[in-house]
Design a protein around this nucleic acid. Structure first.
Lengths: 228, 228
DNA sequence: GTCTATACGATGATAGAC
DNA sequence: GTCTATCATCGTATAGAC
């Protein structure tokens, strides 16, 4: 179904149009935004017919999703690789909360530093879960299902004593800090009046890990107190 | 007729059309979303002419912003009131980080609990600071300027020893947790597989305060260590 | 299965009369 | 301030050629 990068048919040319649309859309979306980029701009730029975009993708919104998911898939693959390494290192001790957070955060911050435009994804996700329309609720699990399942278990293991519900709250807050940094990094420079540098990937990763790790752990302590 | 605030002119009727548009837009946006709500729906529902929306507001996007800002203004006013109370309580000790966070978070979570649709605002803000278009960069300071300035100072005072730049990073992360909770609360229920209740305002406030306070403080400690 | 030509209804926005 | 009339452009659908 989804024609990936290295796929090729013997006949010749199959799947090229789809990729040309994705490439042109990605470039124009990054340059002018989603709403300002019309399907006619995209198809003209790609050298294909307007109707092709509705043949390969069903709608403009699906095309946007396809563009974003194509950029996000290697990020999620890298996340799972790093988690694999952590869990394979079994022997001495289980992975720490900071290590799990780093495996989760580092790939996406590296992608951002490499120029991958991911700012729109948190916004899209938010809109999907607010505005009606069930077309996405089967797509998100396909993209994030494995990552979410694996990391939920890893976070729970790194937070012994926390109930599963509380682990979910903490993951949600941590994702929020990450997503907001990706989606509204410019706000940081506004708050700091230009002093903070959102393009400092290493500094952002370090600060994010420290912030989220402490926040997630704090609620464990509180629970132990109130439960004790 | 539906004169909302205490505004009134002696002649009669001035400003009514504008308010009718705002009321209808707010209702329809909440019901069908922004994109699915056309200006024709709004003006028909409000009983005014289509062109009136382009006279009072310049564009659909400006109308969306106006609707959101109208709902956000009492929230920001309440934030400043609570901060006033904290600072007036001078005498024994300065406000704690948790108290400042509570003054910042409680009004917006209460508004959400009261049914105010604020989920779109973080997304709009994010889009504004990503996609080109300078039309907003004078509007945001007008809405958030006072709140941002006052709370920046309060957070800095509650985090002694932290450089201003680092305070900005922490505020940004904390806003991220809050914004993500507002914009994508449904995700929490997905992560927790239905166990977590995003409509539990008191629980959300408590968890947010503990999470963000700990995260913001953790980086102070780290700074003190490395600074030695 | 892949791509093209063409058309449709609806949209946001504007100009100019009252 | 408010209206009517009108515009270019948009996303989408279809019928049919390779």
């Amino acid at each position: 179904m989804i024609v990936s990068s290295d796929q090729m048919t013997s006949a010749g040319g199959a799947g090229v149009t789809k990729d040309r649309i994705l490439d042109a859309a990605e470039r124009l979306f990054a340059e002018h935004g989603f709403q300002a980029t019309s399907l006619r701009h995209i198809t003209a730029d790609a050298g294909v017919n307007l109707a092709a975009v509705n043949y390969h993708f069903q709608s403009k919104e699906s095309l946007i999703l396809a563009v974003l998911i194509r950029k996000l898939e290697p990020v999620n693959r890298r996340r799972l690789e790093l988690l694999d390494e952590l869990e394979a290192r079994q022997g001495d001790s289980a992975a720490s909360l900071e290590e799990v957070l780093r495996a989760f955060l580092q790939p996406v911050l590296e992608a951002k530093a490499a120029g991958v435009e991911l700012a729109a994804f948190p916004r899209l996700l938010g809109r999907i879960y607010t505005e009606p329309g069930a077309w996405i609720e089967k797509l998100i699990p396909r993209v994030f299902g494995e990552v979410m399942g694996r990391f939920k278990a890893a976070f729970a293991a790194a937070l012994p004593g926390a109930e599963p519900v509380e682990v979910a709250w903490r993951i949600h807050f941590a994702i929020g800090s990450m997503a907001h940094f990706l989606a509204a990094g410019k706000l940081l420079e506004l708050i700091s009046m230009g002093a903070a540098d959102e393009s400092d990937a290493a500094g952002a990763l370090e600060r994010l890990v420290v912030f989220t790790a402490s926040g997630m752990r704090a609620m464990v302590w509180r629970n132990k107190e109130t439960a004790g």
